[in-house]
Every structure is written in C-alpha cells, then in structure tokens.
Simulated assay, not measured.
Amino acid sequence: MKQPTPNVKKNTRRQAPETRPQRSAGAVTARTGVSDRWHSWLGHHREMAVESLRRFFATPLASAMTALVIAIALALPAALQLGLVNFQRAVAGWDGQPQISVFLHKSAREAAVRSYTEGLRADPAIVEVTYISPEGALAEFQEASGLGDALAGLDANPLPAVLLLRPRNTDSGELEALAEKLRDSALTDAVVLDMAWVQRLAQLTELGRRLSAGLALLLALGVLLVVVNTIRLHIENRREEILVVKLVGATDAFVRRPFLYSGLCYGFFGGLLAWLLVAGGVALLSGPVAGLSSSYGSGYVLHGPGFPYLLGLTAGAALLGLVGAWLAVARHIRAIEPR
C-alpha cells in the first residue's frame, strides 16, 4: 500500500475540530445595583402614595367622617391656643409694668417736692416719674367717683400730691427694695407697690397655656386611637391580600407602606379641616368682637389663623396619623403570616 505523505498528515491535523469550553446549564444570578434599588424604592413609595389617595376618595363618606373626628379633636386645643394669642395681643397695649405710687406729705414745700422729683428721674432704677398735683388728683377722683357735687362743697382739698413711678426692673425683690428706699424719704407719707394685677395677669396667662397644652396632649392621644382603629379595620379588610403578597416573599416593610400613607392622608385632611373650623369660628366672632372693641374706643380685631398656622396644624396632624398607622401596623401585620 501507498504510504501517506507528510503533507497529508499536516492537513489532517489542521482540520481537527477545536475543543471549546461548555457553558454550565441552569439559572443565572443577576445583581441589582444601588441605583436600581433606589429607583425601585422611590417608585413603590410614589405608587403607594397615589394608591392611598385613591382609596381615601373611593369611600368619601367613611373617609370624611374619620377626618372630621380628627379635625374636631384638633380644633379644640388649636382654638384655645389661638384665643391665648389674641388675649395676649389684646393686653399688649395695656400698661403691663408694675407701678409705684408715692403719696407725699401735704405739708411738703413745692421746691422740695420739685427737687425730690428731679432726683427720682435721675435714678437709673426708675424709667419714668409722673407728678400729679393735689388739684389734679382731686379732679381725677371727682370724675372717677361721680361725687363731684359732694366734693365741691369741701373747704380744703384732702388729697396730697402723688408721684407715679415706673421702675426699670420688674423683679419682686428689687421692687420691694426700691419701695423701702422711697419710704425712708422725709417727704414720703405712704408708698403703694401696685403689681398684684400684673402677677394675676401672668398667672392667668400661664394657667391658660398649661390648660391648652394638657388638652392638646389629651386630644392628640384621642387622634392616635382613632387612626389606630381605622388602620386596623383596613388591615382586616385586606388580610387575604396581605397573605398573598407574603407568600411571594414580601417583607413587612413592603406590606406596611400603603397603610402608613393611609394614616398620613387621614391626618393631613383632618388637620386641614381643623384649620377650616378654627378659621370659620374666627370669622363668626370677628364682627361682635370688633363692635365691642369699638364701643371702648379701641380698634382691636381678632387675629385669625394664617398660613404658618395652617402649615403647623396640617404637619402635626399628618405626623399623628403616621404614628397612629405605624402603631396599628406594627401590632397587626406580624400576626398575619401564611401557614
């Protein structure tokens, strides 16, 4: 037989098929980047917010009743707090500083009284000194008491000259020390420190502030209970849906998200209704208050809730709704597990 030539062998080696690495069969694991997860998280939040609004307006009667209960609970402390603000504005024009009345001896000479008055005006502890002559004091008393005819028949003026002092410092200890210093003067017959009404006004304002804070805390607890009960009913109505999404691997955070947005909706619209209730109450009372103040010669008008008040009330109510929804979800979502 004829032997194959070396060239044929070389060609045979060249035509031999090359061996390639085989790919492994099976599932391929795909890694999700941080950006993809972030966009997915934002997209789900946006979707749940829109879905919560849709569910809120899908049952307008039930949603409006719940929001109205929240609004009434929030409007009471809000109206009380606004009333305190208006009260402080009303008394802001009054003389809120304590006053010291110095009654001089009737036998004091006019030159000595003038010198004593100038010395008090130069005292850095005193802001203002007002001198009322005996004749001026008598005229003022006649006008205030209505006994003008009876006092006109007196042979002599029984009232002394008076100095009205406005101290710079309102500390009670320093006021007492200043009053004691004034009593030591030879021209002074009596010194009256008039600050009792100032203390009563401050105590009344503090009482109203604490009452408003206590009522706000109590009714905020009531708002939380209303939201908790409402979200609990929502969870029970969607129990089957929660079981299904948990069966396919949904986390508790995924499940609780729509209920948190529902709580935000209830709180926000409840705060908005509360602001409308307070604004309506101010509008109803503005006319009578303006008429009453004009009868006393004052141009005072009620100060209504403005935009910052609206922002604070709706934000606080939305936060209460969110907290109430979180409490309801944290308690009931964990109890719903597929078997």
Score class of each variant (00 low, 15 high):
Val8Ile: 15
Asn11Glu: 14
Asn11Arg: 15
Thr12Asn: 12
Glu18Ser: 13
Glu18Arg: 14
Ser24His: 07
Ala27Thr: 07
Val28Lys: 12
Thr29Gly: 09
Arg31Asp: 07
Ser35Val: 14
Ser40Phe: 00
His45Cys: 01
Arg46Val: 07
Glu47Gly: 05
Ala49His: 10
Val50Met: 04
Glu51Tyr: 06
Arg55Lys: 13
Phe57Gly: 07
Phe57His: 09
Ala58Tyr: 05
Thr66Tyr: 01
Leu68Arg: 02
Leu68Gly: 10
Ile72Asp: 05
Leu76Tyr: 05
Ala79Leu: 15
Leu80Gln: 12
Val85Tyr: 13
Asn86Met: 10
Ala90Arg: 08
Gln97Asp: 07
Val102Ser: 03
Ala111Glu: 14
Tyr116Lys: 04
Thr117Val: 09
Ala122Leu: 12
Tyr131Phe: 15
Glu135Trp: 02
Gly136Ala: 15
Leu138Arg: 04
Leu154Val: 04
Ala156Pro: 00
Ala161Gln: 07
Leu163Cys: 08
Leu165Lys: 03
Leu175Cys: 01
Leu178Asn: 05
Glu180Arg: 14
Lys181Phe: 03
Asp194His: 08
Arg210Pro: 00
Ser212Cys: 05
Ser212Val: 12
Leu225Phe: 14
Val227Phe: 11
Val228Cys: 09
Leu247Ser: 10
Gly249Trp: 02
Leu260Glu: 06
Gly263Asn: 06
Phe268His: 01
Phe268Tyr: 07
Gly270Met: 11
Leu273Pro: 00
Leu273Val: 12
Leu276Asn: 09
Leu276Tyr: 00
Gly281Phe: 15
Gly281Glu: 15
Ala283His: 11
Ser286Ala: 15
Ala290Phe: 08
Ser294Ile: 01
Ser295Arg: 03
Tyr296Phe: 08
Ser298His: 10
Tyr300Val: 01
Gly312Pro: 01
Gly316Glu: 08
Gly316Ser: 14
Ala318Tyr: 07
Leu322Arg: 07
Val323Ala: 13
Trp326His: 01
Leu327Asn: 04
Ile333Phe: 06
Pro338His: 08
Pro338Ser: 10
